[in-house]
Amino acid sequence: MTRARDDAHGLTARETAVVDRLEAGDDRNAIAATFGVTRATIDVMAQRYVISGVQLNGFDAMVRDGSRRLAKAVAATGGCFR
């Protein structure tokens, strides 16, 4: 298996190239044709390796909720906790 030069996450060079094209907004059918794979393969790579705005918004909401709950818990202890 060939690895990308700056491989920090275990992606092959081909996977890295596909992700780069996905992040650039290229058409998934065109990407599939370029790499000689099916559209379904590109869809799987996108699902595994590309973080969407929806996912980021969900994570942001989760962090904000956790921060609010922590602030309430700290306030309930009088501002200190052990």
Rank of each mutant, 00 (worst) to 15 (best):
A30K: 07
A24L: 15
G78H: 00
R14W: 01
L70E: 00
A40T: 09
V37M: 03
G79K: 00
T38G: 09
D27Q: 06
V50E: 09
D26A: 13
E23K: 15
M62C: 03
R68T: 02
V50R: 14
R82P: 04
G25I: 08
T34Y: 04
T2K: 15
L22I: 07
R14I: 04
M62V: 04
L56I: 10
A32N: 06
R39Q: 08
D7I: 05
K72G: 02
V74F: 00
V19P: 11
R14P: 05
R5I: 09
T12E: 01
R14C: 02
V44Y: 07
D6M: 11
I31D: 03
I31W: 04
D6N: 14
R28M: 15
D6H: 12
V63Y: 00
Y49N: 12
I51N: 05
T41W: 07
V50P: 15
C80M: 02
T38H: 02
V37Y: 02
M62D: 06
T38P: 05
A17L: 05
A13Q: 10
V50N: 14
A73D: 02
A40F: 08
A76D: 07
T2W: 12
V19L: 04
V74A: 00
R21Q: 15
V74Y: 00
N57L: 12
D26L: 09
L11D: 10
R82S: 02
T41F: 09
T12S: 11
N29E: 14
G25E: 08
G79W: 00
A33K: 08
K72T: 04
A73W: 01
S52T: 15
A8Q: 13
A46E: 10
L70A: 03
F81R: 03
L56R: 11
Q55Y: 06
T16W: 10
T34G: 05
I31M: 06
